[in-house]
Nucleic acid binder design. Structure first.
Length: 255
DNA sequence: AATACTGTCAACCGCTACGGA
DNA sequence: CTCCGTAGCGGTTGACAGTAT
């Protein structure tokens, strides 16, 4: 069954004044992508005429900007990004698009949603620190789970253990964290040759590779964003086994 | 196991800004 | 100057999934 048919069957995609509304189907997405390929961004009101899409310009633009643009970054907001959001919101207030411009690959909608769910409540709920704390722990657990799943998927698609180790070898001279990364790997999984703990390897790899060449203050920013990991009582066996320096590198990709 | 509650995020709405005729 | 079309912004809503009770 196609998405369009399914959407119709489920009652999605209400038609109002000739325009479809509600969740976009995969077919609509591909029509819009095709339109942008051919005509570029802009002239959104021509989309329906030129592509056959039954969506108005506003809806089309929004879908493209917030979801289909190829340069969008997917996944959790990182602690570093979170810090930028906090900093810029303190500076500019609710100017989401301005804030989003400082976060490549993030949309104003994403930043706005993130702020509302993570910070607004926190600011409002000084009166009930307990509930706040619980919510924080819940969210962290969920984030860890989702991120791990996502990264496992990516990793399984892209790398095997041997390739990972050879990449570390090749990169050691260029990226200063990598010798430590490799050492951690060996400590954590002395006998591993591409088996049981693969789900952990990609995050580890990604964490080292994606860390900026960080001066100390940037490391502090990352740590600030970790939201009192000491409070977490969840299954952090791996992280807790490590010392703080190790935890830093291990935890970064999960945030 | 069932229900209520909460968090997340895509999408919509109303408004404003801007540029061209 | 005014009008109109278009793009963009910020606030809000609603559906869904996950979690707590």
């Amino acid at each position: 069954m196609s998405w369009g048919v399914m959407a119709d069957n489920l009652g999605w995609g209400v038609i109002e004044e000739g325009w479809r509304k509600g969740p976009w189907t995969a077919e609509e997405d591909s029509l819009l992508i095709e339109y942008v390929k051919l005509h570029g961004e802009g002239r959104w009101n021509s989309v329906s005429r030129l592509s056959g899409l039954k969506r108005n310009g506003k809806s089309s633009r929004l879908r493209w900007v917030n979801y289909l643009r190829p340069d969008l970054k997917r996944g959790q907001i990182t602690p570093h990004e979170e810090n930028i959001i906090l900093e810029l919101h303190a500076k500019w207030g609710n100017r989401w698009s301005t804030i989003a411009r400082s976060l490549p690959g993030r949309t104003d909608n994403e930043v706005k949603n993130y702020w509302r769910t993570h910070f607004k409540k926190r600011a409002n709920s000084k009166s009930s620190p307990d509930a706040n704390e619980k919510a924080k722990v819940r969210m962290l657990k969920r984030q860890q789970f989702q991120q791990k799943q996502q990264q496992q998927q990516q990793y399984m698609n892209q790398l095997d253990m041997k390739k990972f180790m050879s990449l570390l070898d090749e990169s050691e001279n260029r990226v200063p964290y990598l010798p430590q990364a490799k050492q951690d790997m060996v400590t954590l999984y002395p006998n591993n040759t591409a088996g049981e703990e693969q789900d952990f390897l990609y995050p580890l790899f990604n964490g080292y590779m994606s860390l900026p060449e960080a001066p100390n203050h940037e490391e502090n920013i990352l740590w600030d964003g970790l939201w009192n990991l000491d409070d977490i009582h969840g299954n952090w066996s791996m992280a807790c086994a490590a010392n703080k320096a190790g935890l830093h590198t291990l935890a970064t990709p999960f945030c």
